[in-house]
């Protein structure tokens, strides 16, 4: 038995490496941030000028992939014209700095940066080129937007990838359109504006701010546990209904049939 276990040491090593690598990669990025030892150590005592602070944070956390001028170091994309909105979206959702090795940046449970740090970096990146600013103004007042319009715009422009319920969906070759239930109003607006990753851009001219706010309002509605008919089964449509029907409902009916067929004691 011993001999068999060690017959392919190379394979075993590979398996271990694969199991550990992505995790360590993510941990390296995460711990570099939390311990504050990753760069110059300047993050612990931040300068009063946000641009200077942002530059320091950028050089510490982003420049190794995106270049000191945001020009991008292949395969990482250039971000000098991404604007503050893109930086705020990517960093506040925890997609950047890149964590796990995957075919797309994935949302982290928590961003690695505080809101102020993110702001500082966003402001700094904005100075590198031309890109949209953080749409703080435009998001204002989404609570009063037209939800019915939002639903229509959502189903026309968003549902094809994120599904009717905002639960996300499959893209080609294992990529995914993410679940929208954790996105904040600002992040939703930013995503439409800058088109992160493979998402297309929806400019403010072709999808005016009022319609974007309406979409935010509709997504906020989808986030409510508003289930008049009871358990929503993940709002995945007929697939989860069918699974529940077979293993839940029909299973109970068959169990009753078995009960009827068993002789009483």
């Amino acid at each position: 038995m011993q001999a068999r276990a060690f017959r392919r040491p190379a394979a075993a090593l590979l398996a271990v490496a694969f199991a550990v690598l992505p995790a360590t990669g993510a941990q390296a990025a995460d711990s570099a941030r939390t311990s504050g030892t990753g760069g110059s150590g300047s993050t612990t005592s931040h300068p009063s000028d946000p641009l200077v602070w942002g530059k320091l944070l950028y050089e510490e956390g982003c420049a190794s992939c995106h270049g000191l001028q945001g020009q991008g170091i292949a395969p990482s994309p250039a971000i000098k014209d991404s604007g503050a909105a893109a930086v705020d979206f990517e960093v506040s959702t925890g997609r950047m700095p890149l964590g796990t090795i995957a075919n797309q940046a994935l949302r982290r449970a928590h961003s690695l940066y505080t809101a102020e740090e993110t702001q500082a970096m966003a402001q700094y990146v904005a100075t590198l080129g031309n890109g949209p600013a953080i749409p703080t103004q435009q998001v204002q007042g989404w609570e009063n937007a037209d939800m019915a319009l939002g639903g229509q715009v959502f189903r026309t422009n968003c549902a094809q990838c994120h599904s009717f319920s905002g639960q996300g969906g499959a893209l080609t070759w294992g990529k995914q359109a993410p679940n929208l239930m954790k996105a904040t109003p600002t992040q939703i607006y930013e995503a439409m504006l800058v088109g992160p990753n493979n998402m297309p851009k929806f400019s403010d001219q072709t999808l005016p701010p009022a319609e974007k706010r309406a979409v935010i309002k509709y997504i906020e509605f989808l986030r409510q546990p508003d289930n008049p008919g009871g358990l929503d089964l993940g709002r995945l449509g007929p697939v989860s209904e069918g699974l529940f029907g077979w293993f839940g409902g029909f299973g109970i009916l068959v169990a009753i049939a078995i009960w009827i067929g068993v002789k009483a004691k």
Partner: peptide, 20 residues
């Protein structure tokens, strides 16, 4: 544009943009 029927200027469509 779909839903609200706004005419579309070429400059309004950014590279990477999508309009239904």
């Amino acid at each position: 544009t779909d839903v609200t029927y706004l005419p579309i200027k070429a400059a309004d469509v950014p590279v990477g943009g999508l309009v239904n």
